[in-house]
Design a protein around this nucleic acid. Sequence first.
DNA 1: TCTGGGGTCCTAGGACCC
DNA 2: TCTGGGGTCCTAGGACCC
Length: 422
Amino acid sequence: MQPVFALVDCNNFYASCEKLFRPDLNDLPVIVLSNNDGCVVARSKEAKALDIKMGVPVHQIQDKIHHQQIVVFSSNYALYADISHRVMTTLASLTPEVEVYSIDEAFCEVGTLRLLQSFTELGLNIRATVQQHIGMTVCVGIAPTKTLAKLANHGAKKYPATQGVVDLTDPARQQRLMAMVPVEDVWGVGRKISKRLNAQGITTALQLAQADPKTIRQQFSVVLERTVRELNGQPCFTMETQPTAKQQIVVSRSFGQRMVNMDLMREAISDFIATGCYKLRKERRKAKTMSFYFTTSYFAKGPRHSGYQVIHLAQASDDPRVFSSRMSQELPTLWRDGFPYAKAGVMFADFERPDVTQLSLFDQPSDGKSERLLATIDQIHAQGLGRLYFASQGNHQPHWQTKQLHRSPSYTTKWAELARVR
DNA sequence: TCTGGGGTCCTAGGACCC
DNA sequence: TCTGGGGTCCTAGGACCC
């Protein structure tokens, strides 16, 4: 049996999460900012109506925020992750297979459900149930391929007459919608590629669907060829319900203030390393390679500089002390005094599973001390008994911490910040 | 003054081997 | 004078996604 994909996508997800706990904001324009309160990453429909663009730096719209009384939030990922989990759990109760595709959307395989109801009825039911259980509004696009399901969802969002559900299983309907959708709105077609396609006279999804897949592969890549085939109803992407093991782990931040002191930089990077190692342990992996970098602002007019260094370990590790001491050795050789560094980060790669760690000839097998120490620290954190830091992380966080001037309470993940009902 | 963070996949090109 | 071809592995960079 041919698969049928339903793409369920939350509307204005971050902004909607904030509104869930603030009914007083119901009809007000709300925006959510990226880390460091840098740019706009989510807008409520009222904010969209005020023509606030996605990704715009917040300092460029300060006046508008003030005059239109736009409500501003810093990102609160703990809250969004928790709401996301609730949405996904509800979807899992309604459909046989769920692939969590991102924090605010999921593909559901619904081919077998056609015997019970029409796809439109199914979509409306999903929408009503998520609304009732969580208070989150979703749109549903249903089609024989993931790319067409994305397109259907796009239509459901754009045209209110659809009531948020588009069944795109009918080829004639596919053609009609594709003719209306600009090619840059197709899943997998970004800025660069749409520009090149436009230059060739391909401006709509339908024109891309009608292009010759072999030619597209030659001129672009196998990736875009798959997109063309998917637009024609030929599935190239399947459901991926098992979370795949990560290939790399990245921790990077922009600083709240420019960093001009090497010792503070060392502390900041050590802190990122500690976070990364925690993520490694959560994934049950050890890394053989870590790289770190620090850089001046990409946008700054003044002099620029960045340092970058890859560190290879003989033996994979998830212990921050191992990575931090190597980073500490290398940092002075990369550092330049006088540059206002704006951002830094660490990347872990070359993962091994802890239970199959390969020792080299001269390595001592671990005595388990480090593992027990780290496990104890993780446990203390998990139980909320306080926070432990390695000395290399320092105690100067306020000097470089990201800005978060508008963060909402952790309504669902911290006892002290639970929502109150009066 | 003020511009996010975390991922994946693919490709081209170089090093190296036989 | 004449200077191969095919394979693998690795890395960097580019494109995309949310």
